[in-house]
Structure formats: C-alpha cells, structure tokens
Write a protein that binds this DNA or RNA. Structure first.
Lengths: 256, 256
DNA sequence: GTGCGCGTTCGGCATCGCCGAACGCTTGGG
DNA sequence: CCCAAGCGTTCGGCGATGCCGAACGCGCAC
C-alpha cells in the first residue's frame, strides 16, 4: 500500500473548493475549508498558481481555477496535420464561394491562421498563413471564442479593442453573439475588423467532439452579405459543410 | 516570497505529461519524464488516482487523466433552479407537442430526470422525476453524451446494454450518432429504450455556453416520427427552441 | 525455465512542508 | 485622523513526511 502524499491531497482539495465557486475565494476562507493554517494554505495555493492551475484575482487577491487547468482538458491540434486534413476542403470552399478561405486555431489569446487559400481571381493577395488576428472582431475568432473557455478568459474584463465603427466592443454584446454562434453553429463578422470586409466561419471538431479549429471565408461585404448586410445563408451553409468535412478527417462522426 | 511545495509541483508535472497523451502512460515512462525514482513517482500518481485526478487502466496498469479532473471543469446545476427555470417552457413544450416533456441532467453515468410534464391527455402516466435512464439509449442521454466528456468516459469500453432490437450497442455507431447530435444541435432515439416509443432532445446551456442539461419529449413512434421512422423536424425545431429558451433563463445569450 | 519489464511495497533518513508569529496594506468606523 | 480588523504574504525553525534504493510479485516472451 503506497503512502499518500499529503500535500498533493491538500492541493487537490484546494482545487475542488475553488471549482465550486464562480467568484474568487479568499485565503482565509480556503484555509478554513481545509482546516489548515493560513501560511500552509498560502504555500500550497501559490504553488498551484505558479503551475497555472490557479489564477489570482488582481483586485481582491482571491483565488480561482486557473487557465492552466483548462489547458489540461484542451487538445492542441498539430498545425501540419490540420493543414493536410483541411487542404482539399478549403480549396473546394474557396472555389465554390469564390472567396479567400482560412483555417485557424486559438493560440495565446489570438486567432492564428494555420492555412490560407487565395481568393480564386487575379487580385493581388498577401499570404495570411502564420498571421494572427483579434478573437472578438473576426468570424474565425468568434467560433473559437464560442467553444473554448480559454479564449473567453483571454479576453479579460475590460473593453474590447475597436477596429472599425462596427466592431463589437461591448463584452455583453459579444457574449450574446457567442451564444448565437452556438445556437446556429456558425459565426459572422461584418465590417468588424476591416471596413467593407466580412467573414463567415464554422467549427472544426476532433473525434471526441471538441472544437479544435475554425474554418471560414472572407471577402467584400457585397459578396458575403445580402442587401441588408446580413450574411448569405447559402455561403454559411457551405462553410458549415466544410467544417463538418474537415471534422470527419479528424474522426468526428466517422467509424474508426 | 513563499516557498514552493515541491511535491505539488511534481504532481502538476505528472498531470501535464498525462494530458499530452491519449493512451495510458506507464509508470517507468512517467518517472523518466520527471527524472524521479519510480517509487517516488508511484506515490505521487497513486495519490492523484485516489483524489480522482488520474485514472488507471485496468489492463495495462498505465495512467491517464482522470474523470475527477474533468469534474473540475464541469458545473453542476442546482436541480431546483433547473426546475424553476424550465417550468414554463416545458409546460408549453408538452402542450404544443402534445407529448410528455422532460428535463434531465448527467449524474453518475446516467440520465437523471429533473423535471417531468405529463402528456396533456387523459392517459394514465407515472411520475418520472427522480428516475434514471441509460445514457446511450435515450435522446436525452445522447445530448448529454454529445457535450459532456464525463458521460462518454462513463460508458466504458465494452459493449452497450441492449433494451430493444433497435438499441445501438456498437460503441462506434453511437459515437457517430453523437457527432450527428453536435452537427444538428439535437438528438433522437427511436425505439432504442422502449418498443414503440421515441424521444427527441436538445441541449440546455448555461451563460458560459456549457451544456448543463437536456430537454426533450417522449411519446409513441407514430406521433414523433414520420412514415419512415425519422423524427419529425417540426417537433425537433420545437424542442431546440425550448432548449434555447431555457438556456436564456440561465443567461445564455442574454445581457446580464 | 529464465530474464526482463511492469507496477507495487517497505523501511529508514534527511529534507522539505508546516506552523506560529509577524509584516504591510486596505478599509471602515469612531 | 487614528485605530482596529481583516486581508494576503513572509520568515525561521522543527519534526513529520516525502523520497529513495532495494526488493517484491506478476506476466510475457524467448
């Protein structure tokens, strides 16, 4: 019978106390819940903070479950694999929508373009692969935000940066948009990042159902939206279907 | 500067090593990754197993991220609150669908009926609130399975129990069904639990977007399905809308 | 049958975890 | 304005607990 490592048990108990609460938990409250000295509890919880399993609220000094613990439950997709699985489907998407197509992942509080297909015309275009974009102002970013708690946490509590007069800078409004994304299964951003440009995006899932990336198109508002500036549903359907097809490459809904 | 609790740091490192792998990790491999003696690593990982943060594969003896860690990221909804928020919407659902309506949560590997509205006719019906049902053979269960990794893990690796000749007992087939649930945003089970009975269900989300419950209807196949035994899309739409309405009661998509 | 690698157990030692006491800061009340 | 209370944080010393090497039992392959 192996002996139990007492301090690890205590650290686990701390995490369980914090998980029950939304608001930051104070050190005194934590110590009382564990029946330990404050100094002991402090050493344990500071260690948990340093390994990223606990975050400390700057204002109150209280503690809450950390982003690093969320990371344990999140799978990072291999970018090379993502590219190779998405390649044919995004080519087809660009061809059928006649717009530029992208595949993106969430990385360090931003959208990272993992793959980019040029708009199929003779216009001058710049390679986007490897570039980063703001989460809140892009359709790809909204998809990632809708399904990844790490992304939402990375937004912080303050106002969101404005890129155009149409950028959603009110956090509550954005959260409402994210709920729409979950209800509809796709996202749009119209002139929120660049004037006269719009984007439509949909989730890419892995075999467990977790959203690991977003796929989307981007182009002029006139092409992506109807006369009332609303995304064209035929294009949204196309993007969603592409998302599902790429998801199937990762085993989602496919017999192993 | 508070000292770091070394064994807690080591335990965290163990979790990080395990999180990267799908397959069970052996003790020797773990010890090598940490640069510790096997016996030391064993004490740490056994402690993590005892607190539920690590599971041990019965066959290989290897270790993997445990269900208890998944629990840290999952919110339990208060059943009384769920009932009171769902009350009016499920009454309306039962009235409009003319079928019995249920709200259910995932608990200990099963579907737990949190709230039940009788089918609005004079038939003899039994109270279902508080009863449990199998995850894999019910529409409510499929919704919970589609969005909660704890539920999928609780299924285990063996064959699924058969209730009728139509029960999906092949795990791969079920995983494919779950992918459909995520793609469509609703689930159905036709004669999988009881002969001549069918169910349609949809997710209920909390304000962060996490699926915390499922709402659904249940009734005779003839009433819920068309001539080809496929769920009626008008009823599915009704159920999905009810799910969204209850979700809004929990703050999903609503300005706080 | 033997060797190897697996996860597990055991006992002893020294190091590290834990504690009480104190610190510095903020807030609220008199 | 001052004091008290409560907050999270730091410090040093002691003893309890974490860690280690060695060994165990099991299963598998040659």
């Amino acid at each position: 019978m192996a002996s139990r490592v007492q301090s690890v048990e205590r650290a686990a108990a701390i995490l369980q106390v914090l998980a029950v609460e939304d608001a930051p938990t104070g050190l005194g409250e934590l110590a009382a819940a564990l029946g330990l000295a404050k100094a002991t509890t402090h050493g344990l919880v500071q260690t948990l903070r340093d390994v990223g399993f606990v975050d400390q609220d700057a204002e109150s000094g209280g503690y809450l479950i950390g982003a690093g613990l969320l990371e344990l439950g999140s799978r990072s997709v291999d970018l090379n694999e993502l590219r190779s699985q998405a390649l044919n489907w995004t080519d087809a998407l660009a061809a059928r929508s006649r717009q530029a197509a992208h595949v993106a992942v969430y990385t360090s509080g931003e959208v990272l373009i993992a793959h980019h297909v040029f708009r199929p015309d003779s216009s001058v275009q710049q390679v986007q692969t490897g570039t980063t974009h703001p989460l809140h102002a892009t359709a790809l970013g909204k998809v990632l935000l809708a399904y990844d708690p790490r992304a939402v946490r990375a937004l912080g509590a303050g106002p969101l940066e404005s890129f155009t007069y149409r950028t959603v800078t009110d956090r509550s409004r954005l959260l409402r948009d994210l709920a729409d994304v979950r209800d509809l299964g796709w996202a749009a951003a119209v002139e929120e990042h660049h004037p006269e440009q719009a984007g439509i995006a949909a989730p890419v899932r892995d075999r467990t159902g977790q959203v690991i990336a977003a796929v989307g198109i981007k182009g002029p508002v006139d092409a992506l939206c109807d006369a009332r500036h609303r995304p064209r549903t035929a294009l949204a359907t196309l993007v969603v279907q592409t998302g599902r097809s790429i998801s199937r490459e990762f085993g989602h809904g496919r017999v192993p």
